[in-house]
Design a protein around this nucleic acid. Structure first.
Lengths: 130, 130
DNA sequence: AGCGTGTATCGACGGTTGTCGATGCAGGGG
DNA sequence: CCCCTGCATCGACAACCGTCGATACACGCT
């Protein structure tokens, strides 16, 4: 327990937000450092509750939602929701801010776009090796 | 165990390959079932070794690579590589086939495209709530 | 100041995951 | 036929993760 100053709020260290940008991973091999950073973001997406949380936040009116809007639709406890939100925040996928009594979360579109571009595939299997 | 018939080869059960297709998760909330299936795919991407494996396979000449090409670049043992390839295969991200002595792996572009589309964000933060 | 509500943190517990060495199986070559 | 190589599986172990109840903290209100 080292940090307890209310809330880290908004900008966090993020992971590898600037290590790799838009090069699809299907074109050239990922470096170890890039893979480490990216895997942390994908790990944040590897839980069904977090996936639904993210989608719920993003599709919420105004592009943001307070925690009170997010605890309802799930069967898990409020501390668990809070934990998942923290994971999403530390992965650089969402931002957060306290406004009065409530804490609001929103999606960071750059992060999603980065992952989306990375996974972008030639779609058409027009390779046909030999 | 239960299955040991050489190799499952090529088509596996996959996860939720057909549950959701192209709707970005930022537009409407994900259902529980969709989230469960998708989280399994993201979980397969949540390890740096698997991420590099996938990228190595995809960017390999001809779009495929044999395991012998994949064990070299990593510090982990061959059984571990084999384990990671199995995870990728069961997540529906890669296909595999035995050809003589060697086993080849290739990326399934539809799977990557599906995830890429899902993560596709409006990019422009033109929301500005209230 | 005191209280009530909203949210984060703590500590614990069980299940899952990544890793290894040892072993098993498949196929090609002497 | 036997061995050698390539790859998968097994069993074990430590580390990590999701979850909970209890508790602490931050604010607004009265």
């Amino acid at each position: 327990m080292s940090k307890q100053a209310g809330l880290p709020v908004t900008r966090l260290p993020m992971v590898g937000q600037d290590t790799v940008c838009c090069v699809p991973m299907v074109r050239e091999p990922l470096g170890e450092a890039d893979a480490a950073g990216l895997s942390r973001m994908f790990k944040a997406l590897s839980d069904p509750v977090r996936l639904r949380l993210l989608s719920l936040i993003a599709s919420h009116e105004g592009g943001e939602a307070c925690v009170c809007d997010l605890t309802g639709p799930f069967d898990v406890s409020q501390p668990t929701i809070s934990h998942h939100l923290k994971v999403l925040r530390e992965a650089g996928l969402v931002g957060s801010e306290r406004r009065g009594t409530w804490v609001y979360y929103w999606v960071l579109p750059e992060a999603l776009a980065k992952l989306s571009d990375l996974l972008r595939a030639p779609a058409a299997p027009a390779e046909v090796p030999a």
